[in-house]
Amino acid sequence: MVVANDPLAMLLLKQDVEAFLYHEANLLDDRRYEDWLDLLTDDVRYWVPMRRNVKFGELEREFTREGQDINWFDEGKDTLTRRVNQILTGVHWAEEPLSRISHLVTNVEIVGVTPSASDAEEVALRCRFIIYRNRVATETDILVGRREDTLRRGDGGWRIAQRQVFLDQNVLLAKNLTFFF
């Protein structure tokens, strides 16, 4: 948590950021994928590493590396846009019929503010998520993990400039990842 020399400004900023995160989650869960894409900066980085079992004392090798290893996701806006377009074809069988998804976002912490809480242009935050996916009849996935986001102020409000997703799974228990974190 950032040590705030202006606690009231921090409180307001946190409220502002949380409102944005809930709004973003609602867009995804309401299947407004194109509106969701508008919340991403053009240079957004979206990274979801894989996670290894490693020996005590070697935790620096736990996650696959961004930009170097194979990761679940390691991409920018172009590929994310293609993912949205794929769902919108109506023939993406893995999301046809569309899954029912709820994003629960919690444990929100602001860990960095530039330049200051009262006129923040960029905010680094950590949160936890639970994603519940249910599709077709009884198929259900629950994915839980930590998210580290960088938000940047844009014309219409906050925009996501970076998202890092750390899943609490080794062998992925979901057959596919057709949704967004």
Partner: peptide
């Protein structure tokens, strides 16, 4: 190639997601 492999393959790959749905059902 790394970037292409990631977006093509596996559970998050745009191509193979649909295979898993078919094998499943």
């Amino acid at each position: 190639l790394r970037q292409y492999y990631i977006r093509y393959s596996g559970p998050a790959g745009l191509t193979e997601q649909d295979d898993m749905e078919n094998w499943n059902y």
